[in-house]
Amino acid sequence: MSIEAKQQTQASVTVSTPKSESMLGKRIGYGVLYIVLAVIAVFQVYPLIWLFFFSLKDNQEVFSNSPFALPTNPKWENYTTVWTEGNISLYFFNSVWITVAAVVLTVLLASFVTFAITRMKWKLNKLVLGLFMVGLMIPVHSTLIPLFDFFLKVNLVDHPLSVVLSYVAFNLPITIMILMGFYYTLPREVEEAAVIDGCSIHRIFFQITLPMTAPVLSTTVIINMIYNWNEFIFINTFISSDKYKTLTVGIQNFIGQYMTEWGAIGATLMISIIPILIAFFFFSNRIVEGIAAGSVKG
């Protein structure tokens, strides 16, 4: 933030130098840049606005009017129809609980591991950390057939546990990596004092360390939420009953059945992305931070 502010003051300094002949050129240059950046922004956002518009239309309007036209008579009932008549509400709540269960497990287990690796003294800690980090590089698809076979053997195919456990396993590496950066910067004095006071290790973890890592925990929670909410291949492969399907697979099937109803398809897609958009609206800084932290250090 401070760098930005500093740059802005510098910008105003350069702009206000009176002798500058190229000022006009510079202004035009900046004007062009802003237009380009704005065009990119429109490219990124307009498809979603268009989606919202056609979610409020019926087929007659879609096929007879220009696709750029606003909905003349917004059909909000498209939303109530798909919510009540399709299985969309069921898929939605499955998405919610599967996401929540996987996120809680992932963040808790990852915190345990990070605490043990950064705070406790044992010989194999580097090796174990290495195992988690190499996990980042494994393509999901290369594990899919044996995973399916494994869940088949332990009777977990078409059981939500198969999906939750897979989400946890495949998100542990990235979560541990993000946590690790924060744990290393965290001062150890509080924990050391607690040990001297005779505090048990579990109390130190739950009552001192976990609360101190709250900021990075919220980052990992949000990142995991987005990953799990959007996940497709595991749920598509392991789950076949409607009662366990989540939104990603659910909308895929639903749209397969109602291929021609633009309004219904639009409303379904909107329902699946609204929670993410709301989360983004409130936590955009955390999301940006988490995505940056989760990628660059790899």
Binding site: I138, S142, F150, L165, I176, H202
Partner: peptide
């Protein structure tokens, strides 16, 4: 305590990532 904190996660990535890789 170390075993208690590390093993659940380690077991998950072993069973669901590393063993499947070899089995593939």
């Amino acid at each position: 305590v170390i075993a208690l904190y590390v093993l659940p996660a380690l077991l998950l990535i072993m069973v669901l990532i590393y063993i499947p890789i070899v089995l593939t």
